[in-house]
Amino acid sequence: MTPLVTLLAAIGRGPLTLLADVGRMATLAATALGRAARPPWYLVQFLEQMLLMGWLSLPVVGLTALFTGAALAQQIWVGGSRFNAESTLPAITVIGIVRELGPVLAGLMVAGRCASAIAAEIATMKVTEQLDALVTLRTDPYRYLLAPRLLAATLTLPLLVAVANVIGVLGGFLVATTRLDFSAAAYLSGTARYLEWEDVRSSLIKAAVFGFILALAGCHHGLRASGGAAGVGRATTDAVVTAFVLILLANLVITVAVFGR
């Protein structure tokens, strides 16, 4: 009996801490955006973050999209051939990539890279009193550190996802034209004919939401860090876990509630 209760309690603890985290993160986001409404604005920091999150994430996001698009096309071919529906391959691949895999995979990859980096940087600043120093040097950490990261991530992710979508479709294209005897023209016209504006819109909205979430998770856990190097390590891990779970949850909510019809 007791081991069972312990197990259930352990499972229940996750959602509870997550819920508490979400509440605190919402407050944090509101504060950061509220403060960022007034100058001083930190344009250089904002551009720097866009470069760090966007440009430097391109290789890993691109590769992920390429591999997944290729594998997806192969699987759809296998599944489709059971219904004699191989010709739907381009349409299903592009919808799968654009609506789901592009934003989710890019979101998770960038969360792995950047939520951790943000958390580690802010946590280090916290435990070495650099955050305190900022405040004594007439600078608001919300404006200087948080706002540029939140805004940069929110704007960068849609750009990355747009690229990921194209590369993902390219991955499917390569498999279909080299292994599955599709002609290039047939594949591309099949892709273009069934892709709707709604698909692209949902893709980019998801991307923006995921970007905001991953930056917020990084900032939140970074600011809460305490206790030296070990505290920085914990903050980094927590940021990535929180970002992953919240991105997948937000994906579900957006998919079902907003674009479910």
């Binding site: 001083p40 930190y42 250089v44 940087e121 280090t124 600043m125 070495t128 009193e129 650099q130 305190d132 120093a133 900022l134 004594t136 040097l137 007439r138 600078t139 200087y144």
Partner: peptide, 28 residues
């Protein structure tokens, strides 16, 4: 007010000179 922290608390992402003039530009 101005403060010298016991541990220094210099911003390690910035060069020394940007650290020194940090308060003058509020970090910009």
């Amino acid at each position: 007010m101005g403060m010298l922290f016991q541990g220094g608390a210099l911003f390690d992402s910035l060069p020394v000179w940007r650290n020194v003039t940090f308060a003058l530009t509020a970090g910009r």
